[in-house]
Write a protein that binds this DNA or RNA. Sequence first.
DNA 1: TTTATTTTTGAACACCGTTCACAATAAATA
DNA 2: TATTTATTGTGAACGGTGTTCAAAAATAAA
Lengths: 225, 225
Amino acid sequence: MIDLLLKINPEGEEFMARRKDHTHDEIREQALNVLMTHLEEAPADATSLRQIARQIGYSPGTLINIFGSYDQLLLSANARTLDLLASDLQNISKEYACPLSRLKAFACSYLRFAEQYNYQWQLLFQHRLPEEESVPEWQLQRINDLFAIIEQALSELATTVPESDLQQASRTIWASVHGICSLSLDDKLFAGSQTYGESMLDSLISHYVSDWRAQYNEPSQAIKG
Amino acid sequence: MIDLLLKINPEGEEFMARRKDHTHDEIREQALNVLMTHLEEAPADATSLRQIARQIGYSPGTLINIFGSYDQLLLSANARTLDLLASDLQNISKEYACPLSRLKAFACSYLRFAEQYNYQWQLLFQHRLPEEESVPEWQLQRINDLFAIIEQALSELATTVPESDLQQASRTIWASVHGICSLSLDDKLFAGSQTYGESMLDSLISHYVSDWRAQYNEPSQAIKG
DNA sequence: TTTATTTTTGAACACCGTTCACAATAAATA
DNA sequence: TATTTATTGTGAACGGTGTTCAAAAATAAA
């Protein structure tokens, strides 16, 4: 049998199909590193499964074996991005005792992250899952952790607020902040870099929170409303 | 001449390369109609230049000749969508004398549009231009017209406001509304359709505007930062 | 009718994600 | 150790993509 093979493939020629000394986890790691590095200076559309495979010295099929599909490779990159973002926001938030400052710092960090990791951020939010495939568990968990930061700050600003109100307010703020960042990035034409987005974030949080807390902290006056 | 054709193309067989009785404008129209119809029930990724060409009975090259590229065909569809959205919002806004109600109706219409024309809306905002190709003129114009509606409402709520403040506030509101709609669409899992998004929009506008106008209408008190 | 011009084409190109029989390797067995 | 079995990675193939372009077809001009 070996003779037969040797006859068919007589020499040198660099045989492929050689099993490399990498575990699946190592290949995962390599592929994700290559992708994340790519995203540091070009959008996701500018690479491909084949390119990534070529760069780590494996065939496209191998990556499909490991990740299931190219979509899921992209999704794994999103997991990394979200982890980065979450730890960023959590660290920043820890540094602020004042809940209002904390909220603003949270929003600004979000914007800064979106600017710095532009293409990762784009992929994270623009990437649509095929069909009605549900958002993965870990992603919901990370997102909930981020909501918790906002909820915590809000609850410090206004005591005795029903949980459901806290949820709605924190979601409203998060979605608004997200929208401002999203629009701010597309709009590089108009505004001079981040100062514009930052002032919008400040405006949003100042005005929204100010009136929102008044609703709970000064129920007797009832001026606003 | 007719005889010649009949001889060359003796029957059925449907020869191609026959110059059809359509002007370029008509072909544009047909292609866009096919695309927009497709977007009524499937995302943009689910079709292609070739599919659209096939459906209108022309070759892919013809569409490239007319539109320049597939990207620009998609962009033309976005023009249509934006026109639809703009006229929708303008009509709705006309019906409300009260500026606050007008703002809320504006936001709700925006959300309803995003829900009804889901895939068109997705394409409109998720589609990234290649390179740093600038947003086309007409698109900026349409968007400015929409800002004008918000600015107008805000100026009715608070007189003697500097133009720059009006601009910032209207942009902040629009970006926030956009973010809420954007997130609300992705979140079909969580919420029971539109009621959730609507209440977030209401919360956003109520609180933000309430505090924002207080800044200008009650300058003597100076309670708010 | 012949010539020149415009329009549309279809084949070709270089890609893409995904599948799969089988070659190359490692592990288990005799 | 030699042989069988199981796993892992491959490369060719499939059907798709957007885009280019020589030439065919249809029209307009001479």
